[in-house]
Design a protein around this nucleic acid. Sequence first.
DNA 1: GAGTATTGTATGCTGTCGCATATATATGTA
DNA 2: TACATATATATGCGACAGCATACAATACTC
Lengths: 179, 179
Amino acid sequence: MSDPATHERDADDPLPSWSALVSVYQSVLHDVVAALDEQASTDSGVFSALAYLERARPPHRLPMGELQRAMHPRYSQPGFSRLVQRMEADGLVERRPDPADRRATIVVSTRAGRAQFRAANAVYVAALATSFGRHLGEDDHARLAAMLSRVTAHRDGERSQVAAAGSVRKRTTKSTSAS
Amino acid sequence: MSDPATHERDADDPLPSWSALVSVYQSVLHDVVAALDEQASTDSGVFSALAYLERARPPHRLPMGELQRAMHPRYSQPGFSRLVQRMEADGLVERRPDPADRRATIVVSTRAGRAQFRAANAVYVAALATSFGRHLGEDDHARLAAMLSRVTAHRDGERSQVAAAGSVRKRTTKSTSAS
DNA sequence: GAGTATTGTATGCTGTCGCATATATATGTA
DNA sequence: TACATATATATGCGACAGCATACAATACTC
């Protein structure tokens, strides 16, 4: 779904910017995923999960649900469950029962998982710089980040308004940041 | 292994802008794909292929290879081959032998395919406006498109330089395992 | 405290992906 | 012409995705 034919040639037509975004995303991601695979033997989903565990506030652990939501809508719940199973089979994480809620599972990265993250992250940073970073100037990166963050913020703001309006009680998210 | 040109906190650190781009892409795409599926029963890959056929310069036809390349690295060659087979099975396109090259196949959208594109495109435009367009102002869309287009142009420029340079390569695409 | 709804995670099934490879045609070279 | 190589597309196969659903534990309501 890159850039279809359309009408609406106005200045606020979002199609050109969306098409350009899709084009950049797809080609850069393609390069980065290839680099991770070839130079670090790391699947991009695995890398992403390890990265969020790395940043987790209690050392290297996150409840499954929070980790899944941190990864945007990248995986469905079943898909994410299987990703974690594979990672556990590969020795990258452990799954521990949550003592506070016996339905829940806490994912903890192992020493091997953290080592693999460090190696893969070096590849990732290098590939991203080559494939994306050096194609824009300093100010451009900052401005791009600002604009795109506005989109996310605006979207999220409206979503929580909708959520709050839809239910009488808005006990929605557990009191965690978890972007 | 490449040396870790690691964590730059500089202004030209591409990570924040890349992360923001990924976040916007994933969530907007999620919404748009859901809308296409729910309101137009159209897979996003099918929609993209129909869109490129729609704007093809000879009426509604393109050689398979060109159509595939137009869709960026979204599908592998085999994956694209099967996408077209499915579309043909659904009556959205025909595959005709190319009289000039009997290896090749020309994909032609059928009347039904064009009708489905029009219906799906209306859904697409509406969903994109809701999910992406209205979260930025007019100038922002233009500036965003300009910046991202620069990335694509710069990337493409370098790629053709590399292609022209020929065999002077580092050890990139080699099948070395490494971990 | 019993009954129902809700939440967290896992599994069966099916569809589609990418990789490796096969097949057919085209092109280059002797 | 004969042969090696390149290009266009298709198929076998294994991996992984999402949907629907199952299962387990918790939370709400009375």
